[in-house]
């Protein structure tokens, strides 16, 4: 592997990892604060991508489509939380898995009914349809660079919000102890709705950013969902920092796997997960294992 190809793979891996981080951070946040394991999270990614495609066809501009789609995703998040997820807070994991699995089926059918089974390409905005040279032979498309930059900015913003604001304090309190939040007199219903719709929007945004890179196709949410689970398992559930490192690890492992061991690329990611589990059963940044 030449040096420039190697650098390109690193860049690709990090970029993919950052996109995964957007999805996984929502998943881990929703589990950490609401205590709900949301299988429909991948569907939000898919919905985001389809909305980006559909709206950009209508408006002729992907950027405008994204601006319109984000509030739409927030609304979808609020609706799903109020109508379905809110009924799950006191229920066991099995109910959560099954109900959100039902939502996955529902969203898949919805996508099929509204947009059909075709694969759609999404064009990058003309202003960003140029590439940067990377080494002698490789190039880096501007849209990809922008995507990576956006993910980094969102990650930093999330960190600032969670660590520095009053709202972030409530989120952290909610993640560590839901009863305490109630005792502090925080409106849990509102907190949960905000966190869930934020998670929905993050997953949707990841789908919108990925749409020009991967095309838009049925079932695109599921691969991402499973990989986000792997990210969360590796990073430690409930930990955004863990999701960040886990996502980069998975992104790099997946990218290099595809180059070095084609055919087994997807298996490598899971091998990494198995290794982490053997070493730390609750993830890299999860609570240390205690035999209790």
């Amino acid at each position: 592997m030449s040096l420039s190809l190697f650098v390109l793979q690193i860049v690709n891996g990090i970029e993919y990892g950052l996109l995964l981080f957007l999805v996984a951070s929502g998943l881990t946040l929703v589990f950490g604060v609401l205590g709900v394991l949301n299988f429909a999270h991948g569907s939000f990614y898919m919905l985001g991508a389809y909305l980006a495609w559909w709206l950009s066809e209508r408006t002729g501009s992907l950027l405008l489509a994204i601006l319109l789609a984000i509030p739409a995703m927030v609304l979808i998040g609020v609706a799903v939380e109020r109508l379905a997820i809110a009924r799950l807070y006191a229920r066991d994991h099995l109910s959560q898995v099954l109900l959100t699995y039902g939502l996955v089926l529902l969203f898949n059918e919805l996508q099929r009914a509204l947009w059909g089974n075709d694969v759609h390409g999404v064009r990058t905005p003309a202003a960003l349809a140029w590439t940067m040279p990377l080494g002698e032979t490789q190039t880096w498309p501007a849209w990809r660079a922008l995507t990576a930059l956006a993910c980094v900015c969102i990650g930093v913003a999330m960190r600032q919000i969670v660590l520095k604001t009053r709202f972030g304090m409530r989120v952290r309190a909610g993640a560590s102890n839901a009863e305490m939040v109630e005792a502090l007199g925080i409106d849990v219903r509102r907190l949960f709705a905000i966190v869930f719709s934020a998670g929905t929007a993050l997953a949707g945004l990841a789908g919108m950013l990925a749409a020009p890179l991967t095309t838009v196709y049925p079932g695109m949410g599921e691969n991402v969902l499973i990989l986000s689970f792997v990210v969360v398992v590796i990073g430690g559930i409930g930990s955004i920092r863990g999701a960040f490192f886990g996502a980069l690890l998975v992104g790099l492992a997946d990218t290099f796997g595809k180059v070095l061991l084609p055919g087994f690329a997807s298996a490598i990611v899971y091998a990494v997960m198995a290794a982490v589990l053997l070493w730390r059963p609750r993830g890299l940044l999860g609570p240390a294992f205690e035999g209790r």
Binding site: H93, V230, V233, I237, F264, S266, A267, Y270, L277
Partner: peptide, 25 residues
Amino acid sequence: RATGVYFIMVTLAFTQMLFYLFNDS
């Protein structure tokens, strides 16, 4: 080795690993 939701997610991940193994080769 994992419990609770971790167990669910890990079994899911292994299932998909096998799925891709068969699907991709």
